[in-house]
Write a protein that binds this DNA or RNA. Sequence first.
DNA 1: TCTTCGGCTGCAAACCTTTGCAGGACTGCA
DNA 2: TGCAGTCCTGCAAAGGTTTGCAGCCGAAGA
Lengths: 348, 348
Amino acid sequence: MPATIRDVARASGVHISTVSRTFSAPHLVNPETRVRVLACAEDLGYRPNRAARALITGRTHNIGLIVADIANPFFPPLIKAAEGQARQRDYHVFVADTNEDVAAEEDLVHALAKQVDGVLLCSPRMSNSLIEQVSREVPVVVINRQVGGLPCVMMDVGQGARAAIEHLLGLGHRRIALLGGPRGSWTAREMRRAATAAARGGGAELTVLGPNQPTETGGGALAEQVRRGGVTAVLAYNDLMAIGLIEGLDALGLRVPQDVSVVGVDDIALSRLTRPKLTTVATPTAAAGRTAVDMLLQLDSDAPRGARGRGAAAGDRRTTAQVMLQTVLVVRDSTGPVPEPGRDDTGA
Amino acid sequence: MPATIRDVARASGVHISTVSRTFSAPHLVNPETRVRVLACAEDLGYRPNRAARALITGRTHNIGLIVADIANPFFPPLIKAAEGQARQRDYHVFVADTNEDVAAEEDLVHALAKQVDGVLLCSPRMSNSLIEQVSREVPVVVINRQVGGLPCVMMDVGQGARAAIEHLLGLGHRRIALLGGPRGSWTAREMRRAATAAARGGGAELTVLGPNQPTETGGGALAEQVRRGGVTAVLAYNDLMAIGLIEGLDALGLRVPQDVSVVGVDDIALSRLTRPKLTTVATPTAAAGRTAVDMLLQLDSDAPRGARGRGAAAGDRRTTAQVMLQTVLVVRDSTGPVPEPGRDDTGA
DNA sequence: TCTTCGGCTGCAAACCTTTGCAGGACTGCA
DNA sequence: TGCAGTCCTGCAAAGGTTTGCAGCCGAAGA
């Protein structure tokens, strides 16, 4: 049923190669012929078969986007932005969810490799060496992690963590807890490094709790530890954990921000809707998605287009762009001045 | 660089067709040969090229998933479930976002048509006739809408709305508002129909406000109208609007549920995290995603597999499955008994 | 010993495009 | 009139795979 290039050729009385050129190199075909072909194509509802085209050009005009958990509210804005940017450039995007599983992650990129011109890896959990290995099979741009010389786009959570700690210091807090993220997360390491340094610089004590599941439940589970630790402020790995923690503290009878200040990271839509509204480090997720797509497509057009097969597939011109996006601290209602000493479990 | 079937054939000393069969019809090849071929394939890192396979089989093993807005928290759980189900069946999924735009929606399904075995249309904004038209080009399963005889999976918001209204009636409310959804939404119509009937049955008065943008802002904008209307309870088109409304009411000095009861629809993760926790009609979005994928794949395997080209592409065996998923009312903290009469703007 | 059959493998066409090469029709110039 | 050059078009190979058909080999039955 679907019309092929041959049907159009027959209908318009030209050779298939002319039809092909009408679409892929219009300047090579006589204007009159072109309009005739276009008219027939329109009539028959012809659309070039991308798979067949990919077979010979080596360009699929698809990209893959691999994330740890689609339902984690951090990702949808990124996915949306990436998809929009890609489509504007006439690319379609495969979205895949690894469920935070390393093996699934690897399988996925292999499975997708032949079908895409490149893959976006969001907050991958794979080891660096594994990532480098798969990057030899298919062009890769990494989001939210720095791995070797691979192109990547990061959000400066280090700076964000520092700003958050300084904000807390400014409110008088000196005993602060950091709710760590998942094992193997680059972001988690960066935050820890920066937060520790900032706390030390401000003469405060920072205790690290974790690693943890980066979810609401993961945050809630730490409420008891936070209470026992006697800290007056908490920086959480992300907003979800911060919100979970606030819930948990509430259940223990601790109020935010009167008893404990809490700051999150990401500024997901949700953080504006909870009560208290969450103080958080806003990460430019949409910009990251767009930038990553641009980088990937750039990489792609730099690649040796004609040299298919054995050609120097990669390595020649390693575009080693690594961009760092700025974060900004958004102060809302979940942080406040350190409580007066003399409370049950806060005193020295 | 990537190994082809030919490389494997050469390495294992058999014809390419034998390699092909090793993968797609293993029982046709001698066990010894098979292990040898498999070993060579493994060695060379060979993976069948799906595009080439698609070219001849007519099956891409891809599906398309078209949603109005990836960032709307209603969709991610559905996307996640659909993607998981698809991949389990060895399908990859294209996700595309229409930004609530009808034209984009149509373009998208045409653009995707050649590259997928079927398309999932989530809460489409296209007209019925347009949907039926595109469904002749590519198999379609519609989610959250009933259109002609097309296969679809719906969530019973009618029943949900009825349950919500009955819950409110039970709490003594007799003046209730319905916050309508976007124009052209099937769900919105169903809710309205059911809610009106239920209210009338219970001797209550139901005023419909809308249509509206199905967002937090859309809900917030109605706070003033709700106050002026003097209603004691509100059923919102979805949780986002309900939450926005609660915010708006709060700004006007009205407390939920003491002054006004609010019920949402969807039970997005968010609704458990706001204060007060939202009473809402839970819709089985994940189940809907999985079911829709199953239906699409079923459709696909029913189709005349061999008869490519002119064959009876559709129409023969219209699998007209239309499944309706149950919803359930989740009572939390945003609904309560009707306030005592005598308050400023509630009295008759 | 001859046939038959089953199990396995090779052959080649087909799927739909793109693209280097060559050829045809024309134009303009000498 | 002849020639070079330009524009356009057709030819055919190529890309990686599947699959109907035919052929080979060996075993079983007669």
